[in-house]
Design a protein around this nucleic acid. Structure first.
Length: 423
DNA sequence: CGCATTTGACCCGCGC
DNA sequence: GCGCGGGTCAAATGCG
């Protein structure tokens, strides 16, 4: 969690975006009070106050005299004072929540390390720091024994139809059911392994430093891109299935595209933990196709509203072939960012489905949407983490911690349902 | 000499 | 069945 950008400038866009929507100024104020972890700058509040005062002036234009102006001035000062107090109060609240979060995170890391040392729960422990809906269905195909081990935390959560009493069936039916179950698991595992997290960032370095150790095992010329694509695998532990691809963007070679796939089977340094969690969360998220299209749209709106405040990042969720991919675009510097959510042709507006400005072939049969627990509250904004990551990128290619925090916020960060359902 | 990287061969899935 | 493209393997090579 990087809170360095709490007082950054991206927050302003959150307000301007809400002004564009059907939410009025009053609702924004309510949001500020009910979501104290949002970072609020004094300038923002001053601007808001100024807007109201301007309205007062205009409405009273016909009857203005010296006395009225004096009253207006007093009212302005009183309003400014109130806003200043409110600002201070919110800052204190934000500080408290931030401290609580950091304390909890440190405690969580300590607990995870203890569990690692005791020799249990090694493989999937990194999912703990994600929301409860994304830490249930996790397995890795490179180690099939994990997914089939009963009682393990990594056991795939099955649909109700899988809870049939096998004992009441005949042998043939048992085999059939078992076969179906295995096929289903295999399919899920395949999808899991293929789910990816892609990060686009401007960097002159040949590869971003993300806290893990990688060994290059291949390089290929990809079609339509003059720049070669490099393949790396994690070498922090023998048999770690995590891989990543690094390639420069064909259109803009200053943009480095790093794609992660798989789940680490070993303890990770803090800088790499969030990134690892992210790839797993992406796999879980894209695997769990239980969400209805309405829910998906609502969550898409929610995600958009969460991401849009930033003036320097864009998140893309794509279930398109060949692999479902969550993309964090940290290359944009204008305010024209938009969330791009790729869906099936039947539901996708024609203006939506593009990835990185290139047309996408929509041949996916299912889009799983986002599953985020409304109960899980993150005490920081995505704006904070993404803007921090972007700032870190522009300053130094070694930005793993900030970047990982940004991605994790996208995938694991949750906000109250009230924010998610209003569009 | 050991390790990492390079690079051509090979495998596999997919579309025609 | 065939060709194409993405991904991986493994022998050759380079480097400290």
């Amino acid at each position: 969690m990087n809170m360095n950008s709490i007082n950054g400038h991206q927050e302003m866009d959150f307000f301007s975006e809400d002004k564009k929507s059907n939410k009025g100024m009053r609702n924004q104020e309510l949001d500020l009070k009910t979501t104290p972890w949002l970072s609020i700058k004094k300038e923002d509040l001053t601007m808001s106050t100024g807007f109201q005062l301007m309205s007062i002036k205009m409405s009273d234009h016909s009857t203005v005299d010296n006395e009225d102006r004096s009253h207006e001035l007093e009212a302005m000062q009183a309003e400014l004072g109130r806003m200043d107090e409110e600002n201070k109060r919110l800052r204190v609240l934000l500080s408290q929540v931030t401290n609580n979060y950091n304390t909890l995170q440190a405690h969580l890391l300590a607990v995870m390390q203890q569990r690692d040392q005791s020799g249990h729960e090694v493989v999937q422990r990194q999912f703990i720091d994600l929301g409860p809906t994304v830490n249930t269905a996790v397995a890795d195909t490179d180690e099939p024994s994990h997914s089939s081990t009963a009682g393990g935390s990594q056991e795939i959560s099955t649909s109700p139809s899988n809870n049939i009493e096998v004992g009441s069936l005949g042998t043939e039916e048992k085999e059939k059911l078992s076969s179906n179950k295995n096929n289903e698991q295999a399919s899920q595992e395949a999808t899991m392994r293929k789910a990816r997290v892609s990060v686009r960032a401007r960097s002159e370095a040949p590869m971003i430093t993300d806290g893990c150790q990688w060994r290059k095992y291949g390089q290929k010329m990809a079609k339509g891109n003059p720049c070669p694509r490099a393949y790396y695998r994690c070498t922090m532990a023998t048999g770690c299935p995590v891989r990543k691809q690094v390639q420069r963007c064909a259109d803009d070679r200053s943009i480095l595209i790093t794609t992660y796939e798989g789940t680490h089977n070993h303890p990770l340094p803090p800088a790499a933990t969030a990134m690892a969690s992210t790839t797993s969360a992406a796999a879980s998220m894209l695997l769990s196709g239980s969400m209805s299209s309405t829910d998906g749209l609502m969550n898409a709106n929610f995600l958009a509203r969460t991401i849009l405040p930033s003036t320097s990042s864009m998140a893309t969720i794509s279930a398109s072939a060949p692999f479902p991919t969550v993309t964090l675009d940290l290359t944009h510097s204008s305010s024209s960012n938009q969330l791009q959510l790729n869906r099936s042709p039947a539901t996708a507006p024609s203006s939506l489905p593009n990835i990185f400005g290139q047309p996408v072939v929509h041949n996916q049969s299912k889009f799983t949407g986002l599953q985020m627990s409304p109960e899980t509250h993150r005490p920081s904004t995505l704006t904070d983490t993404v803007s921090a990551a972007t700032a870190a990128i522009t300053a130094d290619p070694n930005f793993s911690a900030a970047l990982a925090a940004a991605i994790t916020s996208i995938l694991g960060g949750s906000h109250p349902t009230t924010n998610a359902t209003s569009s």
